[in-house]
Every structure is written in structure tokens, then in C-alpha cells.
């Protein structure tokens, strides 16, 4: 039966989407085709020349590389840690729910507050990590001010903040495996390690795809921790593309350039998502 009233149900969401999402995006695209001098109030159509000049903007592409690096560090590490934790909390033990709840807390806290806490954790000498490593006689590291440590430090923090949701998704994935499969494997004499690789891991393929995809999208758009903790430094080592665009738009007020950069970021995100999608579909099929 054809519905006649579907538009009534869609109207609130569609009007919201049009006014507060699509209109701003369309406006951004229009701006990206102009050369808008906000201060002077002059505006001039320049076609795609903003995009053309981006092609040779080394700093912009440097920030894209930083974002890709950050993503390559934080997402796989985050997934691995989440799987291990999910395996632990999905054991049939008392209090598993309590631990799940506890582990979820960091992800519901405001990024602003969490960033301030992590600044302390990473402080040289008095910071949490350096206080502990000092006990083992390790060298003091000023994590957030060290060119080679700042980006990994941010990635490590993201493992902590995103642990909760990822863990829950993996728990769901693990629980969806029929217990009979484990029992069969156990009868074949498989140990815990083999059981995980032979039974759980293949079953987690769709979950992995989901976590990887959403994690990648979020990581490529990283902004708030950088704004709060490193401001892109030291020496641009944490100048990720989300922050780069922010500076372009809000500090330099080059709105046309920033808009063009946002659409390039969109393309990068879409490309990464598409590649992962292809890869995982293939993998998922090969297991079937």
C-alpha cells in the first residue's frame, strides 16, 4: 500500500535538516566559489580557483597528512584495546555490568574538561605519567611539547575517551556469536587463543567495519582536543586538518579558503570511508 501522509512525518526533520544543515552547507559551497573579504565586505566570484590554489598549499596538505597519521595511530590501537576489554567484560562473571558502566564514563564527559585533565597527565616532571616513569628511572618527556610525542599523545588520549562506546559495540558483536560454535571448537581441542581467532574474530567482521568506519570519520575531523591542548604545535606537528580549517575560518577569517578546505576534507573522508567499505565487504564475503 502506498503511503499518503509520509511527508507529514518527514516535515519536521526535513525542515530542520534544510534550514540548519543543508542551507549552511550549500552556503559554504557558494562561499568556496567566491573570494569573500569579510573585513572589506567585498565579494567576487572566482569559480574553482580556491580549490586550485589549495592544490599547492603545502601547509594544508601537511595538516591532511597529520590527520591521516593521527587516524592510523588512534583507530587501530583503539580497536585493539576495545576488543581486549570487550572480551574481559563479556565473560560470565559477577559485576561485569558495573565495569562496563565504569568504562563508559570517560566518553560522556565534556571534551573541554577531559582535555584539561590530560594536559596535567602529560605535564613534564609533575605530570601523572612522568611522576610514575620517574620511579623507574625513565627520562622526563614533555609530551605535548615534543614534536615526535604530541600527536601520539593525542591519539592515546582518544583511545581512553572512546573506549566505552567501542567496547559496548564489541560486546554486542561477541554476544551475537552462537555459543554452540565455541563449544564445537572446544570439543576440537582448541584453546582460548585459537577459539578467538577461529570463531570470534570472523564473526566480528561487520562490527570491525562499523567501528573502523565511524572511528575514521571522527578522527579525520578531530578538533576540540587540539584546540584545548596543543593549538596545532609544537612546530605544526598536531596541526590536523580540522584545526587548520578552524584557524583559517575563525582566526584569519578567510572564509572562502576555509570553506574550500572543508569540502576537500569531505572528499578525503568520503574516499577513506569508501575504501574501507570495499575492503571490508570483500573480507566479510570471504568468510561466508
Amino acid at each position: 500500500m502506498k503511503s499518503r501522509h509520509h511527508w507529514l512525518f518527514l516535515t519536521p526533520a526535513m525542515s530542520h535538516l534544510s534550514i540548519f544543515v543543508i542551507l549552511p552547507i550549500a552556503f559554504s559551497f557558494w562561499i568556496s566559489l567566491q573570494d569573500w573579504n569579510v573585513m572589506k565586505g567585498t565579494i567576487q566570484y572566482v569559480g574553482f580557483s580556491q580549490y586550485q590554489s589549495l592544490a599547492t598549499n603545502a601547509q594544508f596538505w601537511g595538516s591532511v597528512v597529520n590527520s591521516l597519521l593521527y587516524t592510523a595511530l588512534s583507530v587501530p590501537l583503539g580497536m585493539a584495546v576495545s576488543i581486549v576489554v570487550a572480551l574481559l567484560v563479556s565473560q560470565p562473571i559477577k559485576g561485569a555490568n558495573l565495569f562496563r558502566t565504569l568504562y563508559f564514563i570517560p566518553s560522556v564527559c565534556s571534551t573541554v574538561a577531559v582535555s584539561m585533565m590530560w594536559i596535567y597527565i602529560y605535564l613534564p616532571q609533575t605530570g601523572m605519567i612522568n611522576s610514575l616513569t620517574k620511579l623507574f628511572g625513565l627520562k622526563d618527556i614533555d609530551f605535548l611539547n615534543d614534536v615526535s610525542w604530541a600527536l601520539p599523545a593525542l591519539a592515546f588520549m582518544s583511545v581512553w575517551t572512546n573506549l566505552g562506546p567501542r567496547m559496548i559495540i564489541y560486546v554486542a558483536g561477541l554476544l551475537s556469536v552462537p555459543p554452540a560454535q565455541y563449544e564445537a571448537a572446544q570439543l576440537d581441542g582448541a584453546g582460548a587463543w585459537t577459539r578467538f581467532w577461529k570463531v570470534s574474530w570472523p564473526a566480528l567482521a561487520p562490527t570491525n567495519a562499523f567501528v573502523l568506519l565511524t572511528g575514521t570519520i571522527a578522527s579525520l575531523q578531530l578538533f576540540t582536543p587540539v584546540y584545548m591542548m596543543t593549538k596545532g604545535g609544537p612546530l605544526y606537528s598536531t596541526d590536523v586538518v580540522g584545526y587548520h580549517i578552524f584557524v583559517e575560518a575563525w582566526k584569519k577569517f578567510h572564509l572562502s579558503t576555509a570553506s574550500a578546505q572543508s569540502f576537500v576534507l569531505l572528499a578525503v573522508v568520503a574516499l577513506c570511508s569508501w575504501m574501507q567499505w570495499k575492503l571490508f565487504r570483500k573480507q566479510a564475503e570471504s568468510y561466508e
Binding site: 535538516l17 580540522g242 580549517i245
Partner: peptide, 14 residues
């Protein structure tokens, strides 16, 4: 599709 476009830029038109 709109979920993929994020960022501080749209806050100016908004």
C-alpha cells in the same frame, strides 16, 4: 550524507 560534513566552517552560515 550530511553526517560526513562537519566542522567549524558551517557555523559561520549557521
Amino acid at each position: 550524507g550530511t553526517m560526513m560534513f562537519s566542522g567549524t566552517v558551517v557555523q559561520v552560515p549557521l
